[in-house]
Amino acid sequence: MVSLRSADPASGASGIFDDPFVTGAAVFIGLLGSFVIGILSGMRSRGQKTYVHHIAISALTGLAGLINGRERSWRADEWMADLEQSATPIRYAAGVVGAALRMRLSDLAQLGVRPMCWVLASDLRTWGMLGPVMAIAIANVHAEQGWGSAFFTLPGVVAFYAGVEWLRHRWGIEVKRGRRPEGE
């Protein structure tokens, strides 16, 4: 292990600060840190805190604008107006970045939801896709474990049916059906 203490001439071991490069780098880092802290605290004491805040807020709102995309570019004006009022603008700007992310994720989710809505809007499409999968699953259970186990997959089929109906109800999907003759 390298010792931080100066070299002991009697033992012949060398300390890390004996190296003039390491000593110089340590002094430089220390001075740079003090300089930055001094500038920031000086700004704060002179009431120039808003300058640092302004940079942080601009960076965060710029990031939110990038995430948001071109279609929502007008939102930046709204957010800037709201940020003006906030007592904690950096925190608010971070929230705005979160809002931009959520809006973008919701756009992505819509891409996945739309095909699902199309499938769920028809019994033929829904059960035409799910039916064979479930039939194969039951046949597989039967082949592997016999009729007893296959019988226990029936609650799963009922759960699938209930799940499909629940999704249709939750997403407000009207199912297209063929016309039934009058009086039925």
């Binding site: 709201d82 009022q85 608010y92 705005v96 970045v97 979160g98 809002a99 959520r102």
Partner: peptide, 19 residues
């Protein structure tokens, strides 16, 4: 109300209110 006032009065964050 506008965005900021809605966040203040509902106690929700801007990350929730704007979406």
């Amino acid at each position: 109300p506008w965005g900021y006032r809605i966040t203040e009065e509902t106690g929700l964050g801007p990350g929730t209110v704007y979406p």
